[in-house]
Simulated assay, not measured.
Amino acid sequence: MAMHTQRQAADGFVYVSLAQLMALEFATRELSFFARQPRSSILAGNHASRLRGRGLNFDELRRYQAGDDLRRLDWRTTLRTGKPFVRSFTEERDRSSLILMDQRMSMFFGSTRSFKSAMAAELGALAAWMMFQAGDRVGGLIFNDSQIDSIAPLHSRSRLQVLFASLVRQNQALSVETVADADEAQLDKSLQHCLALAGHDYLICIVSDFAGAGPRTLQLLHQLAAHNDVIAMQVYDPLALKLPKQGRIVVTQGELQIELAVEQRQVRQPLGEFLNGRLKEVAQLLRHSQIPLMMFSTGEEAVLQLRRELGRIIGAPR
Rank of each mutant, 00 (worst) to 15 (best):
R36K: 14
R36L: 11
R36M: 05
R36H: 12
R36I: 06
R36Y: 08
Q37S: 09
Q37I: 04
P38H: 00
P38C: 01
P38D: 04
P38W: 00
P38G: 03
P38N: 01
R39C: 00
S40M: 07
S40C: 08
S41P: 00
S41W: 04
S41D: 05
I42C: 04
L43R: 07
L43M: 11
L43D: 11
L43H: 08
L43I: 12
A44H: 10
A44F: 14
A44G: 00
A44Y: 15
A44K: 09
A44S: 12
A44M: 02
G45C: 03
G45W: 07
N46H: 08
N46G: 01
N46R: 07
N46P: 01
N46E: 14
N46M: 07
H47I: 09
H47P: 00
A48V: 10
A48H: 15
S49D: 04
S49W: 01
S49R: 06
S49G: 08
R50N: 08
L51G: 00
R52N: 09
R52F: 06
R52V: 05
R52P: 02
G53L: 01
G53M: 09
G53A: 03
R54A: 03
R54S: 07
G55E: 12
G55Q: 00
G55N: 02
L56Y: 11
L56M: 14
N57A: 15
N57V: 11
N57F: 13
F58R: 07
F58D: 13
F58M: 06
D59S: 14
D59P: 01
D59T: 08
E60M: 07
E60A: 15
E60Q: 15
E60N: 09
L61I: 12
L61M: 15
L61A: 01
L61K: 05
R62H: 10
R62V: 13
R62Q: 13
R62S: 09
R63Y: 10
Y64C: 04
Y64I: 05
Q65A: 01
Q65F: 07
Q65W: 05
Q65G: 03
A66T: 11
G67H: 04
G67C: 07
G67T: 10
D68C: 04
D69A: 05
L70I: 15
L70D: 09
L70H: 13
R71Y: 09
R71W: 06
R71L: 07
R72I: 11
R72P: 04
R72Q: 15
L73Y: 09
D74S: 08
W75N: 10
W75T: 14
W75A: 12
